[in-house]
Structures are given as structure tokens and as C-alpha cells.
Design a protein around this nucleic acid. Sequence first.
DNA 1: CGAGGAGCGA
DNA 2: ACGTCGCTCCTCGA
Length: 469
Amino acid sequence: MPKLYDIKLKEYIFSTRFKNNDFKDFIDFSDDFVVSEQSDILSAEKAFFAWEKYAQIDSEKPFPSQEFIFDMEAKLLMVLARMELNWFKIDSGRLKEIWVEIEERIKSLEMEIYDLVWEKFNLNSPKQLQVILFEKLNIPTTKKIKTWFSVDNEALEYIWQKYPIASIILEHRGLRKLQTTYVEWLLKTLNPNTKKIHTTFNQTWASTWRMSSENPNLQNIPAGNWYAEEIKSCFISSSPDYKIMVADYSQVEIRVLANLSQDPILLDAFKAWEDIHTRTAKFLFWDKEITSEERRRAKTVNFWVIYWISGFGLSKQIGIWPAEAGIYIDKFYELYSWVKKYNEELLVKARENGYVETFFWRRRYINNLNDANRIIKWQAEREAVNMPIQWTAADVIKLAMIQIDKLLNTWNYKSKMILQVHDELVFELYKDELFLEEKIKEIMENVVPFEAKLLVEIWVWDNWKKAKK
DNA sequence: CGAGGAGCGA
DNA sequence: ACGTCGCTCCTCGA
């Protein structure tokens, strides 16, 4: 495998000629050309930015595993280039139908709103909406923002029971979002010849070393409500010979936390294949039969406590009083006492060294841990606590992607990896290669020999829509 | 064109 | 003041 800087030297010329996305105008979308040229250009871009970023790190003190990380990113570079060439097929006909359906609903919601206020105004303008709600209708304000009072979802949800107009605005806004950001943007970025979506993966732009995706961003396709699921079902396989396979890391962050903190209760729960949210719920709510509502609350607690959230923040999340939320947080640390100890020691070390490290010794320098301003200090602490978890999770899936790509390529399988969404991989699975499902699950779960084993869930369908968890 | 408000995902 | 990050949309004023 060539080193990243070798790739960079070889491809530098391309990256300077085709900065950013300008190159798309030069691409002839006939198949041969795409495979050879575009691959070079995309790799070049990534190599260029990756090299720049590593050059920065090089100027810092060297640290043990730099070569390992460097090697991983270099290998991933090629994997991403291949993924971008595979593209995701879209059912554009259905997408256009959805656009029309949404448009009709939006029009009727608009009429309802204009009727209620006896006036036409621009619903897309928060400024105009503020005037209508807070001056014309005299609705009490709830949340201050820089300029005046907020009309965001949180504010509207607070008043919708007393003022029905709020719920209409909420629905209207949600549908506009789907229509413009997703349906229209997907149709715009769709390649008309191949009916496929070409996203660009950025390997090195995110400060967290997560990947990002743009033109279009395929990492924030909505899910949950009816229209959102309809949009997801428009992501289809490129031919009837292929299925869409989704492989999803289950609770990856809390499993990573278990392994970093070595908390015995947490480790045991995972080793015994217990449901971790129920485990927490049993402790929070006194060991009786756990209702689904209690499990849901415990899930939120598990999820947020690893982000070092305040009692105030947690209370807003689950709609309880701050004092009660504070009790949940204390309880969490009582049960998983090593997690608390681990976080405290991590912060002590971070203050001494000025940095924190991930499982793979990626390093993050953190400045404001001793800032006199509490707000800034807390933010730095959250960053310090978060980073080893989030970044380790990002590395886990990167390593898995490299191995899976190797598997698919050495045996010349027809199945392809087409997308990464942080803890989820999407494949086109060829009909004669269904056995790859097990192999891929095996790779993903064992790519890092954690004590609390990683768990991967897999779905296979005709499209990207999947059952709600 | 950029800031600000808003909202989607992980 | 009280998860983080990234991408995209729209408006509005310079």
C-alpha cells in the first residue's frame, strides 16, 4: 500500500486543476471515463486535504500510533473513491410523485394558515412569522434569541395546544424541509443518464475525524415519519439482481464507553447480552417489571450521560424537572461507578497533558479546561469526555470498511459498498452472494477485539427504507 | 455574498 | 448557559 504522501505527490496535479466540485462539469458520464478519471480526481482531492491535515499534526509532538492512523486513512482513501464510483440508484419517477403529493399538502396548509390570520405572508421567513404570532395574534413568547423571540419547533411545540396555528405551521415547515432539502435536492443532483446519486465523501474535513458527505449529503436523509420513509424507499438497487443491505452498529458508543472505562457492570451486561437500556431502567426504577416508557427514559439517560450533559439539559430532553434529571444522572454514576471514575481521571490527565486520546491514540488538544468562565470550561470538559468515545467509534467503522472493501475486491465479488452513515454501512448485495451478509457482520463485529463485543444488525431489502426500531 | 434562523442525521 | 458535529434551505440587508 502506498503511503498517503506518495498518493498526494502523484495526484497533486489533479487536485489543483479540479478544486472542489468544479470537476463535475468536466466529467463525461459514459461508463469508462467515469471509472478511470473520476476515481483519480476524487482520490486526489482527498489525498490533498488528508495530507494537509497530517502535515499539521506532524508539527505537534509525535505520538505512538501515528503510523497506524496514517496508514488507516491512506487505505480508507481508496475505499471511499471506490464507493463514490458505485453510486446509489434512485427511483426518480416515484420521487417526483412524492414532490407533487407534498406540494398539494403544503398548498392546503398554507390556505389554512392564511385563513386563520386573515393575511398572506411568507411562511418561510421567521421574521415575518414572529410579527404574525407575537404582535398580530399576541401569543406569549417563550424563548429568546439574538434578534428577538424564537419561532423554532421547540417554541411552537410549547404553545400548539392553546394555539392550533402552531401545529399547522409545524407540519408546513416539516414538509417544506423534506421537499426542498431532500426531494428537490436529490432530483437536482441526480445524474440524468444513470439515474444515480453521486455523493462526495469528505474524509478529512470534520474536526472529529468522522466522515461527511455532500452534493448531496446522504448522511442526513430523514427517517421516521411517513413522507420521510417514502423518500428513503426511493433509494433502490441498480438492477433486480441486487438487493440493498444495511448493516448497523447497535449502540456502538455505549459499547465503546464500556471498553474504555472497563466498568465491570457495563461489561458484564454486554457480555451477558443483556439489553442495556432495560438494565439501566431496572436500577433507576427499582428492579420491578420495566414498562416501555421506563425503558425509553433509561435509553435517553444512557444516551445523554455519555455526552456529559447537565441535569438541566437532560430535563429538557425527557420533559421532567431538572432536580429529577439530576437524580437520574447520579443514579447512573452510582450503578456504573467506573464510568464516573474513568471520566474524572480522564479530565485530570487532560488538564495535565493538554490533550485526550482515543482507543487508537488519536490525540485531541483541548485548551479551555481551566478557563475562568464556567461555561467555556464545561464545554471543554464535554469535548474532552466525548471525544474518545465518538472518535473511537468513527475509527471502528473505518477499519471495518477497509477490511470489507478488501474482501469484496480480492474475490471480485459483484456486491458493492455504497454508503457510510457514521454507524451504518449500506451495500448492494448481489443475488448469488447472499452469504456475504454473514461475512460482513463477522468483520464488523470483530474488527476491534473489544471485551464488550460489538453488535451489528443487518437488514436486506429492495430499498433503503427499513423497519423502525 | 454572508449572517442569522431553522432543521435533518449520527 | 447548560451534547457535539456537518450539510442545506430560506430570508434579508449590505
